[in-house]
Design a protein around this nucleic acid. Sequence first.
DNA 1: TGTTGACTTAAACCATGGTTTAAGTCGTAT
DNA 2: ATACGACTTAAACCATGGTTTAAGTCAACA
Lengths: 124, 124
Amino acid sequence: MKYCSISEVSAKFNIPESTLRYYEKKGLLPRIERDEAGRRLFSEVQMALLQTVICLKNTRMPIREIKQYMDWIQEGDATIERRLEMMTKHKQKVLDEISLMTDSLQGIDEKIKRYTNRIREERS
Amino acid sequence: MKYCSISEVSAKFNIPESTLRYYEKKGLLPRIERDEAGRRLFSEVQMALLQTVICLKNTRMPIREIKQYMDWIQEGDATIERRLEMMTKHKQKVLDEISLMTDSLQGIDEKIKRYTNRIREERS
DNA sequence: TGTTGACTTAAACCATGGTTTAAGTCGTAT
DNA sequence: ATACGACTTAAACCATGGTTTAAGTCAACA
């Protein structure tokens, strides 16, 4: 089993060390193992969990909610239904968010076209 | 020309009055006209500008940048190229953001499938 | 005339999500 | 031996984007 130091994890996932420590403190990552000197050792499992945290953050799930989800993972199979419900609802929120952004992009595209035309006309 | 009070605009755009005042103070809306009693009167033009602010906010443009854009609109035609450049760059950021969310949705979908299967098996 | 209700302001307050700082502990290369 | 670099902690600090509060003004209705 390979372990990574915080600097390696930071480089690998492109996340500041301070943020990794902050995530652990906030409970987004289960208690990370330590070496004899107290330094964090990230196992493969913990890096997989970090990948999940990143996925949820990319879709803008708030930290409190991510913590709840990670807590449920630690609790084991008894929480699977709650996790399914959370992910299903979250997925819908993300789809709604993507729709809103996609719709709003049309307003931006209009401006781009308008400005492009105005500049073209001006040059003629 | 029809004017709207702040409460009407708040209802129409579903934005708290406090937020509308905050936007004006931050310079996202040009100085709103007032009646004799000092109350805000939103003209059609200002509501169109507000719609633009909302569009940019929906796509997560930061307030400072929206302010810059609105300032350029007030400055007139001399700023059209800068506005075009800003909108073009912003559009790309929004597309990148949508891609990231869309990709991350796959991780969420996997979890949903896994949990769904586990629950189905458990019931059998 | 006086009391609502809708508005005004400046300033204080709040939540979120980190980042930075200060002080200290190791392990190792010189 | 010591000095350096990588790490540790708790606590302070910061930016962003509002929201809330307190104190006051005004119009209209009873």
